[in-house]
Computed example of a mutant assay.
Amino acid sequence: MDHYQLAQRIRAFRKLKGYTQTELAEEIGVSIAIIGAIERGTRKADPRLIRRIAEALGVEEEEMTSAPERR
């Protein structure tokens, strides 16, 4: 999965959880600028940050990083 697709999934999971970018940033201890850049796809998130985002959003890391199955 490329980082643009990951960005879209992070945004979708964040919105499903009802978090703003600011709330997510505070939850995981990064700046809102980092969350914004990740969600725009202009910054690649390292695996540790992806793990922290997944935990904060209550989803499995694999669910966030794996491409949806096509039927």
Rank of each mutant, 00 (worst) to 15 (best):
Q21A: 00
E62M: 08
E23I: 04
A33W: 05
A37L: 01
E26D: 10
T65D: 02
R51Y: 01
I38Q: 07
I38R: 13
S66D: 03
H3M: 03
L49V: 06
T20H: 13
I38K: 06
E62A: 12
I35V: 03
A25F: 08
A37K: 05
Y19I: 03
S31P: 15
G41D: 08
R51V: 00
E26C: 01
I53F: 01
A33F: 02
E55Q: 04
E27A: 15
K15N: 03
D2I: 00
I28N: 10
L16T: 09
E27V: 09
L24V: 10
A12T: 15
E27T: 11
S31D: 15
E63Y: 00
V59A: 00
T42R: 00
I53H: 05
I53G: 07
Q5S: 14
E60I: 06
I28G: 14
A67H: 12
R71M: 01
A33T: 00
L57F: 04
I38H: 09
Y19P: 11
A7E: 05
I34N: 06
I28W: 13
E69M: 13
L49D: 04
T22M: 07
P47I: 06
I50T: 10
G29H: 13
R51L: 05
R71H: 09
T20N: 10
R40V: 00
A67F: 15
M1H: 12
A25S: 04
R9A: 10
I10A: 01
L57Q: 14
S31G: 12
R40E: 10
I34E: 03
E55R: 03
Y4L: 12
T65Q: 07
L24Q: 09
R48Q: 11
K15L: 10
A56C: 08
E61L: 13
D46F: 04
A7C: 09
G36R: 11
R51T: 01
A25E: 08
F13M: 11
E60S: 07
R70D: 08
A54E: 08
A12N: 11
E55C: 01
R70A: 07
I35S: 02
A7G: 14
R71F: 10
K44C: 05
D46C: 04
A54M: 13
P68T: 09
Y19A: 08
R14K: 04
R9K: 09
L6C: 05
E55A: 14
I53D: 02
A25I: 03
Q21S: 05
S31Q: 12
Q8R: 11
E55G: 05
E63D: 01
E55D: 11
I38A: 05
I32A: 03
D2M: 03
E39Q: 09
R52V: 04
